[in-house]
Design a protein around this nucleic acid. Sequence first.
DNA 1: CTGTACATGTAAAGTGTTACATGATTTT
DNA 2: AAAATCATGTAACACTTTACATGTACAG
Lengths: 181, 181
Amino acid sequence: MSLRMALLGLLASEGPANGYTLAKSFSGSVSHVWKASHSQIYPELARMSDAGLIEINEEQQPRRAKYYAITAKGRDELERWLMEVEPNRSIRNEIALRSFLLSNLSREKAIILIEREIEYYRERTDKLKELRTMFDNSSDQKFGHLSAELGLRISEAIYGWAKWARSEVEKQKSTGTDSIS
Amino acid sequence: MSLRMALLGLLASEGPANGYTLAKSFSGSVSHVWKASHSQIYPELARMSDAGLIEINEEQQPRRAKYYAITAKGRDELERWLMEVEPNRSIRNEIALRSFLLSNLSREKAIILIEREIEYYRERTDKLKELRTMFDNSSDQKFGHLSAELGLRISEAIYGWAKWARSEVEKQKSTGTDSIS
DNA sequence: CTGTACATGTAAAGTGTTACATGATTTT
DNA sequence: AAAATCATGTAACACTTTACATGTACAG
């Protein structure tokens, strides 16, 4: 359902668009929040049209593009989902899984992995801080800056964790061998 | 691949186990890091056995249980995955998506949703802090406390974000109507 | 006129969830 | 004897990724 709601939200707040444009959103600003490829988006738009949540305008568009617009039913459905459907709060985080598996490596190798994460999340945090500055200067009435801020805070949290985790692993006495061999 | 690696990691660090016990791990301590149900685990164990990553001992077990043990090949594969496979760092977070969609609600309704998240993550943060205390007192050589700490820090980050987001939304002038109608 | 960006789809494989289905052993 | 827990599986459906496939319009 999430992809459907993301599409409805984009059409509601940014007006009618074609599938290609929507797909680009999912690799741009929205990508920090949800990812989807065009092969998932086109069939979903067709199903949403069947369900009456969006309307297609195929006429007079260049390159046989289809323009999709949200319907009143679509707006109702989006609001109903937001207000009444219990959020799925499960976080599927491969970095957390990898940190759980770290005890299967030697201390030295574990530190190498942790340092990769420190570097990745340091860069990511910097990028998201720039993005926040852009939002601060644009003074729009939308809440796009809320999700940008959430992404930033999670990134900072992982960065802080990774630096702490390195010091934790360094504290442990080296066995001199891989713990998994 | 992640489920496979999670299973290999459990068998490597906690020794041979049957599918039922592994499934319980995925709804217990490991669940903070990765979730899986038994209907996913049993077929995966069969495929891992076919691939030579684990060995099955079916004899002399009560209740026709099958005991699985990691092989040398399985240990190699786990280390190879950890060290050489680029982590999938994409976070699929429905709460972040919902925060992105908040501009499609009236200010009042948006605040109701945000307050639900404040409550949820306040409770979750408390629970994970208890879990951390348990790790602190158990003084094991494993790194389970690393992933527990990561889960806690992410939970705290979302909690802090939600409180900030409420104040942001409250700042905005009420239009008196739903922005989506 | 050739490459790039625009634009839309389908197919296959992999991953994940929910429901269905069965039987063994222990606890009350 | 009944209920709970242990134990293993399959089926159907939903979701996601990667690859395959095609055609349009514009820019260099």
